[in-house]
Simulated scan of single mutants.
Amino acid sequence: MNGLQQDQLALLRSMLERARAAIANDAERIGSSHDLAVEEVETSPADMATVRLLNELAQEAAGHKAAQMGVIKHALAKFDDGSYGACEECGNPIGFSRLQARPEARLCIACQTRAERR
């Protein structure tokens, strides 16, 4: 798989599985964003604004966790189809050091740099 050795692949897969489990545990522990919602009560306009802000932050956090889970599942699926470690843009191998830092990385350093400049 794109120049990665079996022990490297095992390490990276383990890192992704731990990240997936951590997100799932957080979601289970916290519950849905609806469970986190602060109920609006007839109070001052400033208090109502605070309640709305807290509810928006809870929804945003839940959305971020869902997005993270999607990225991790995508990376794990690439193990199954044999494409893990290959840049999705140019097809070149993604370096092991980059994958250690970001095991969910989809792009090599060169393509990621180009994407960030756009």
Rank of each mutant, 00 (worst) to 15 (best):
F96Y: 14
I72E: 04
A19H: 08
C90T: 02
V41W: 00
L107G: 02
L99C: 04
T43N: 10
L76F: 06
L57Y: 03
S83K: 02
L11I: 07
F79A: 06
E104H: 07
V51I: 14
G82S: 07
R20P: 08
Q5Y: 00
I72C: 06
L16K: 05
H74I: 00
A27E: 15
E104L: 02
E28Y: 01
N25P: 00
A19S: 14
A75E: 05
E28R: 11
N25F: 01
S14C: 07
E28W: 01
K65T: 13
E42S: 12
A67H: 10
T43K: 10
L54Q: 14
L12D: 05
A22Q: 14
A101R: 11
R13L: 07
S14E: 12
S83T: 15
A21M: 07
R98N: 03
S83Q: 07
S97V: 14
A22M: 10
A110I: 02
N55I: 05
Q59S: 15
L11P: 01
E88L: 09
F79P: 07
R98W: 01
L99H: 03
L99M: 05
I30Q: 12
M69I: 09
D26G: 15
N2K: 07
Q68A: 10
D81Y: 02
L36S: 11
N92L: 13
A67Y: 03
H74P: 00
P93I: 06
L4V: 06
L11S: 12
V38P: 01
S14L: 03
G85L: 05
I30R: 11
E89R: 06
A46L: 11
V51L: 03
A27N: 14
D47Q: 13
N92G: 13
R52A: 15
S33N: 09
Q8T: 09
S83R: 08
V71N: 07
A27K: 10
D7A: 12
Q100A: 11
R106I: 03
R102T: 11
S14Q: 12
I23R: 04
R20W: 08
S14R: 10
A110W: 00
P45R: 04
E17Q: 15
E40Q: 10
E89V: 01
Y84D: 09
R20D: 13
